[in-house]
Design a protein around this nucleic acid. Structure first.
Lengths: 356, 356
DNA sequence: ACGCGCTCCGTAAACGTTTACGATACTATG
DNA sequence: CATAGTATCGTAAACGTTTACGGAGCGCGT
């Protein structure tokens, strides 16, 4: 039984303690920055820990204190979601982490498998107790997950508002504001028959988007026509399909508002097949800005925002709703819509001449 | 102290045991499917656990058995990576999970913050001991992470081969095979001056890609010209830049091989600005297939593969390298390149007429 | 000399599991 | 009936932390 030699891999705080010839209590206090420990011994402990490569076992720690210092971001990578949303999550993640890291919190992503019920998945993850708090995305119109988390008293914030019972913290892109702005612009250009695309799923953003569209129309005295609300997947194929439906309408719309900018690629393609050119015969406005939109001809009018900053906001909202952290973020609004900036393109830059 | 009434939230296995009036040992054995427990009582235990919503505390469990049943997928969301699509990761994730879930393993994603050194980040995550094994992606040419994990004796597999010392399990797309096939095709069409794009970073796939390109060229007796290897970011902008550089070359190439299919969008745009049309004046071949490629005019010749199946393979490789699971996957090759299938498009479907 | 407060540290009890070990009751076998 | 074997269960010791509690030593004022 060799005892000296190379510093063998640390087994636990116990070995570190007996190597320093002090008690484990003191070692623990030294490592955790507790006040009642001599500065001198703290230095020794930290040095020894560094040298021997000791690092606290997280299981033991979180068993004892019931906390893990990990925040989970649940993402439901449904087939549809996978097709769009490329950099969306990773960009938001960057913003989240920039805040969390200041508090020594780590972020992990919890991807719900396609074939599993998100609610059951979340239950499993909560039961694992590997996260202290959660960020939910892709919120449904009514979302059982919120009620469950509220009942389980685990803090959470949502990326996207919802109608669910509990008042929960969230940030959300300003979907109705965007719809509002787009309609104002299109109406000013002479359009009165304006279609809108919305996701086929129960995700809440679609409802909010259409609601804003409806209110804006009514403000201009234009009746709301359900036939102009086209449900389609948020992908290029979806855009193609939207155009297809548009062309089939009797009183063909002169403008269309897309929930997802990539759809414009498919839409352009389909209408051009029909001899209709975007930006001249039909106005197109897209939600959010993708780098790809810049490569469309004609360039797409859309809305820009910083997803990174949205992540920052979301993290702060979550933390301010957690007792242990809320003093860092004293007066934070717990619900916040995130503004977007209009990026004018050529796709709607024409005045509609009343042709009939 | 009320004792009856609503089933209050379970505190632990102890309460569950005394509610059933049996010992905690038996309860634990019943829940974990151990053999020495009466089928009758097992049923009772499972029923009670279900009814009271009991679920084992993961910290306690993993403290005791030193295992967490969680696999981590580390992703370095570098700025550049974010610009490309993360549906890559989400798709692979689907394949991984379909395997892991059979073994009651959960997958979490560990996104390394932009501003943190991936190596340090990984060290922190390993220290947390929240994962039993790891999957690394975006492997560098030489990657310190592998050595660290090997030394720490934590199992891992990589998405992408590397030159690092240790023989580690990996799957990788068949970059050199693709380069090979593309060159054969282009040469058959009369091209001899063929450019190639490669990432600007130290990620290994670029080296493998160029290596395959080089060997294929030499097989055809075409000298390798370093000037034709263009480093650029894997984005539309990068494609634009590649085209820019191409146009600046004296003896202008008649074909180009792109490491990332989205680059074709920018490349098309730039060459068309110069009056050169893809598929007639210049041949373009892209690596991997994106849905977007279908919307390009002319359609892009590229290579298709199932990233989901690649995930399946990767998961199996990882598990077969773990003592506790390897009997499930007896004779699995621990290193495997993943084949891709050619998807012929119009972008290289012309015979080069020798023009000079 | 005594008591008090302060600083620093050791002791031991939790946290919620799993599991080796032994105990009990019952069955089969001689 | 004695004994061995089997099926089932209870007991208690781990796993590695954190932390409440108390104790030792010291300075200081009375």
């Amino acid at each position: 039984m060799v005892h000296g030699g190379k510093p063998r891999p640390m087994k636990g705080i116990r070995q570190l303690a007996e190597h320093l010839d002090i008690s484990i209590g003191t070692v623990s206090r030294a490592l955790n920055g507790k006040p009642d420990v001599n500065e001198e011994t703290r230095k020794r402990v930290l040095a020894a820990a560094e040298q021997l490569g000791y690092v606290a076992n997280q299981s033991g720690r979180s068993l004892r204190q019931g906390t893990t210092n990990v925040i989970g971001l649940m993402i439901q990578s449904s087939k549809e979601t996978v097709e769009n949303s490329d950099n969306f999550f990773l960009t938001v993640t960057g913003g989240l982490q920039s805040v969390f890291s200041r508090h020594n919190l780590d972020l992990i992503m919890l991807p719900c498998p396609h074939d599993e019920d998100p609610y059951e998945y979340l239950k499993r993850m909560v039961a694992r107790r590997v996260v202290d708090a959660l960020i939910l995305s892709e919120t449904q119109r009514v979302d059982k997950r919120f009620d469950m988390l509220a009942k389980a008293k685990i803090p959470f914030a949502a990326l996207g508002r919802s109608l669910s019972g509990v008042q929960h913290p969230w940030t959300d892109l300003d979907f109705d504001g965007v719809a509002n702005c787009a309609i104002d612009r299109l109406v000013a250009h002479g359009h009165r028959r304006i279609a809108i695309s919305t996701p086929a799923s129960d995700i809440n953003l679609g409802f909010v988007f259409v609601e804003g569209y409806r209110r804006a129309l009514e403000r201009h005295g234009i009746p709301y026509d359900p036939a102009l609300v086209i449900r389609a997947k948020s992908s290029e194929q979806g855009g193609y399909q939207v155009a297809d439906e548009l062309l089939r309408l009797d009183d063909r719309p002169t403008a269309v508002l897309l929930i997802y900018e990539l759809m414009a690629i498919g839409l352009y393609r389909r209408v051009m097949e029909a001899g209709i050119v975007p930006g001249r015969d039909i106005a197109v406005v897209g939600f959010r800005e993708a780098p790809r939109a810049k490569f469309l001809q004609p360039t797409l009018t859309c809305f820009r925002t910083s997803l990174h900053d949205l992540g920052v906001e979301l993290a702060e909202i979550l933390l301010s709703s957690m007792p242990a952290y809320n003093h860092f973020y004293p007066n934070t609004r717990l619900q916040r819509t995130w503004p977007l900036e209009l990026v004018p393109g050529e796709s709607d830059a024409f005045q509609l001449t009343t042709r009939k």
